[in-house]
């Protein structure tokens, strides 16, 4: 586990080595810049190599960075991240139960808005109603973003649409894939689900205290990675694009889009997102079946209302507003 709020010594060593791509940085120079002994520098370099970095060393010249792993390490996420606050505070895990669970706990402490909890692998990734979300090691992006919006609980649902649209835009920018949104915010490619968003909030009757936007993106999963029960309904970006996708690169694009759209929402409100969602929807103007815990019905998806509720025209002609349930 590597859990860091600010760059540690090892991360600072990486920053110095990156700045010197052409040549070596001596152990002595590093020890001077970081105010640690040369032995400590050597220990940190050794730890970085164990994490997957390729670092050449020469007794005469010092250290040289020759390769970085495609691993979700704080130093790699922060490198070239163009956000103001989203993803600046990072909690990176090799393995975790659920990023949302940890994010909700962390959000109750003094974590900053925009803090991100991310793991290579989730052992109990969650979907709605405690369903499982498949999160194998190294093949996807499984993370949660902590936000502290000053809004009422009933407005918090707006942000689930904001997040869905940010993801669609990020996928477009980074992979060129044009994804659709299934109500409310499942991301679809070729009729199959490629990312899901599960949001949790902690709120009083009037105001949200904090929220965790839990995001799961199937990035480089092969067909065989999906078990029989979801193989016809789930896909990955690499399957859709026909090539491997850099998880680190995509993550930075997603964080950038999320921050941009979140700022836009806070400044201009929700209505423009509704319009944008309608353009990207794969649910509207289709016959849909809604399955909830207590009821199940069919109808025609005619619209979403100003709160994001799905408006379904039942066969009786009655218009029903849907706020939850499985839509197929």
């Amino acid at each position: 586990m590597n859990k860091r709020k600010v760059p540690g010594t090892a991360e600072k060593i990486l920053i110095f080595l990156r700045a010197e791509k052409s040549g070596y940085v001596s152990g002595e120079a590093l020890s001077r810049k970081l105010l640690v002994t040369r032995t400590a520098v050597w220990k940190h370099v050794h730890a970085l190599v164990k994490q997957g970095y390729s670092i050449g060393s020469s007794t005469r010249l010092g250290y040289r960075l020759t390769g970085s792993p495609d691993r979700l390490l704080a130093a790699e996420i922060r490198e070239g991240l163009l956000t103001k606050y989203l993803g600046k505070e990072l909690y990176c895990y090799d393995e975790i139960g659920s990023t949302n669970e940890t994010a909700m706990k962390l959000a109750g402490t003094n974590t900053e808005e925009g803090a991100v909890v991310i793991a290579e692998k989730q052992n109990s990734g969650k979907g709605r109603l405690n369903r499982k979300w498949l999160s194998p090691a190294g093949a996807g992006l499984w993370f949660s973003v902590i936000l502290r919006p000053r809004i009422a609980p009933r407005q918090a649902t707006d942000l689930t649409f904001v997040a869905g649209l940010a993801l669609v835009q990020a996928l477009h920018n980074f992979t060129g894939l044009e994804a659709g949104l299934k109500w409310p915010n499942d991301i679809f490619l070729d009729g199959k689900k490629v990312c899901g968003i599960l949001t949790e909030i902690n709120a009083g009757p009037d105001l949200v205290r904090h929220m965790a936007l839990g995001i799961g993106i199937n990035v480089n999963m092969s067909k065989a990675a999906f078990p029989a029960e979801i193989k016809d309904s789930a896909t990955s970006l690499s399957l859709a694009a026909g090539r491997e996708i850099s998880r680190l690169g995509l993550l930075k694009e997603v964080l950038g889009q999320l921050e941009e759209k979140y700022e836009l929402y806070k400044r201009d409100g929700f209505s423009s997102f509704i319009a944008e969602w309608k353009k990207r929807s794969v649910t509207l103007n289709k016959r849909v079946r809604i399955k909830g815990l207590a009821e199940e019905y069919e109808g025609f998806a005619v619209d979403i209302n100003k709160d994001g509720g799905l408006v379904v025209r039942l066969d009786s002609g009655e218009l029903k507003k849907v706020y939850s349930g499985d839509v197929t």
Partner: peptide, 13 residues
């Protein structure tokens, strides 16, 4: 309470 895949755990005041 769930709406739009957002889960809000309601607590007694």
């Amino acid at each position: 309470i769930e709406a739009m895949k957002l889960m809000n755990e309601i607590k007694s005041e």
